[in-house]
Amino acid sequence: MALVSPDNRGLRLATRYAVLTIIALIFCFPLVFMIMSSLKPSEQLLLDTASLRAFLPIGDISLDNYSAAFKRAPVGLFVFNSMLVTGVTVVLSLLICSMTAFSIVFLNWRGRDLVLSIILATLIVPFETIAIPMLLLASKLPWIGLDGFTTGWLNTYRVQIVPFIADGLTIYLFVQYFKDLPHELIEASRVEGASWGQIYRRIVMPLAGPVLATAAILKFLAMYNQYLWPLMVVQQEQYRPVMVGLQYFFQLNIAWGEIMAYLSLITVPVLAFYLFLQRAFIASIASTGVKG
């Protein structure tokens, strides 16, 4: 008897799609809940949480929470600050970390294994343990700008960017990816007289699309979700990012509807960024899986 008949193959396909659909719905539920809740008054929102109404646009639906959120906090400013800090950090991080990894993987210099080990060791150090020493350092760092020579980086964009440009995880991702590139390519380029800079720019980086996407997404999420560090180093509203801004909504009487509206608004850039890089991100994960 055939194990796979046309009938049961169709059944299995249907079952597979049903399971996948359920899993997809489970992953979508939080987003749907957030968006639907952002359209409801707080009282209705809280009452609806006890039923499936929480996922449906029913009841007293309006955009009032969005206008109230903009009234309560400078949402646009916070999103701009986060996008600026995140964008600059991601770009610089991709550049610096890929160069570091390139140097470790392709350049033959003494001590590179030790350096890589030290970089990897930083992965096990929780940020919370170094936050206070970093704060003390940041409060005393010198700077030359339009105001001349100043001391202290507090209340600036750079204090939110510079400490996070290089990190062990991003370097590690690049190192792993570069190690799997065919070394014959590099050797052939050297034989042809290409400089290391040219190899980095014209050979390695054009092949690094998937790891660039992965590193960019991970860095983007880490930076966009920053809370503790900006809380410590930024006291002026003009530099506050979105996650600190979220606290504007936690008053004695919590405005849950406005919180959901704010969360919906600040999720848009994250979703857009992910969708933009989604194909390369999945390719990177898939290639990692194949290589085992």
């Binding site: 704060l135 940041a138 409060s139 202290g152 809380l231 006291q235 509203e237 801004g245 606290q247 008053q251």
Partner: peptide, 21 residues
């Protein structure tokens, strides 16, 4: 005046004190 969200205020003051700010 510089206003802080209440939920983040105490931590901000502690950090400000550490940084001499």
């Amino acid at each position: 005046l510089e206003s802080f969200p209440q939920a983040a205020y105490n931590d901000s003051v502690t950090a400000g004190a550490l940084a001499g700010n």
